Simulated scan of single mutants.
Amino acid sequence: MIDALTALVAPLGVLKDAELLTGGQFATTYRVTLADGRRVIVKTAPTGTDQLLAYEHDLLRAEALVYEMAASVPELKMPQVLLTDFTRTLLPSDALVVSHLPGVPLVDAGFGPADPRTAAAERGTGEVLAALHRLTGPAFGYPCGRQASSWAESFTGMVDELLDDAARWSVPVPAADVRAVMSRHATVLADVVRPALVHTDLWAGNLFVDPSTGELLGVIDPERAFWGDPLADLVGIDPMGREPGTPAVLEGYGPLDVESPSARTRMELYRMRLCLVMMIEITPRKFEGDWVEPHRTAVTANLHRALDALA
């Protein structure tokens, strides 16, 4: 692997050291130090597709596309794309090389709920989301996947793909209930008329902060982004929660409808979708450990809470 990484980063410099980073469940990521002292991040996609959900194909290409769009919007605080290799010749899968961000992941910063640094990070998150959602796509859907002219059609297709994934891996999900609430609430999806860029996965592990102040310094991993409803990002921050973000996130964001019946219903639909993702991926990913069954139980309960709210 070192030889492949050396060849990959050669246009940037001579590889001195490569450190495998942990914490992600999709890609393989390395922190590479070059001979001149610069550090870069190398991210590689899974080599096999048999463990991927339908929407997870070509995610690294989507991530590169989002970073390239973000390059002209410094408020998004995303890394700079330095190299891409989608030929799958140096490595058996897609590879992306980006700049190394300052700060530490918010999940590792050790801030408590009442710490003012937590509020600072959350306000910064709201500001980033507002800037991200001002970007408009050509259609609704995944940047490198299926797209549609309406959000209702696109989101319905996303959910249908997940139900197909569940059937493929024999994961028991309440498919009939999911389809029933999708049919019942199709009209509220029509309230979304502009395909905004949605990160979908802004949990604390994808936010880099200044450990002394809580200032948000960087945002990573937009690989699962889609063009759709900005409210989906409030669910993505905390899919197991029941509220649309924290007061600090909403303060940083600015004016945003999170209280109307349409907004509340749409967020329950997005929570339902994310719970389906988290339930289904356990099987093909072959998750192991004492955490798996409590996680499955919690996600299942949250899915049913969403379905009950939508019924």
Rank of each mutant, 00 (worst) to 15 (best):
Q80P: 12
H133M: 06
L82S: 10
V171W: 15
A54Y: 02
V159Y: 07
R194F: 14
A306E: 13
A109L: 11
G236E: 01
A139D: 02
A306S: 09
G228I: 03
A309P: 04
L34E: 05
D191I: 06
D210Y: 15
A166Q: 13
W151N: 06
G254I: 08
L15P: 06
A62S: 08
A71N: 04
S183V: 15
A130P: 10
D3R: 10
V188I: 09
A7M: 06
P143R: 00
R38E: 14
A27Y: 10
V219P: 00
V14F: 06
P102L: 14
A175L: 10
W227F: 05
A130L: 13
T28H: 04
Y142M: 02
P143S: 01
R168L: 15
P255R: 13
P294C: 10
G241Y: 03
E56N: 09
A119W: 01
A27K: 03
D177S: 11
L59H: 07
V178I: 09
A180H: 03
S260A: 00
A176D: 15
I41C: 07
Q147T: 09
L162F: 05
V9S: 08
L216D: 07
R39T: 01
V219R: 00
D238V: 09
H185E: 11
D191K: 05
F26R: 06
L34R: 04
S262E: 11
D85G: 02
S99E: 08
T187C: 09
V209D: 01
T49Y: 10
W169P: 11
R184G: 10
A306V: 04
G24Y: 01
V258K: 00
H133V: 06
T118G: 10
R264G: 09
R194E: 11
P113Q: 14
V98G: 03
H100W: 13
D229K: 11
I220N: 03
D94F: 03
D108S: 14
L12E: 01
M1A: 12
G245D: 00
L8R: 03
A175K: 12
N302V: 06
L52N: 07
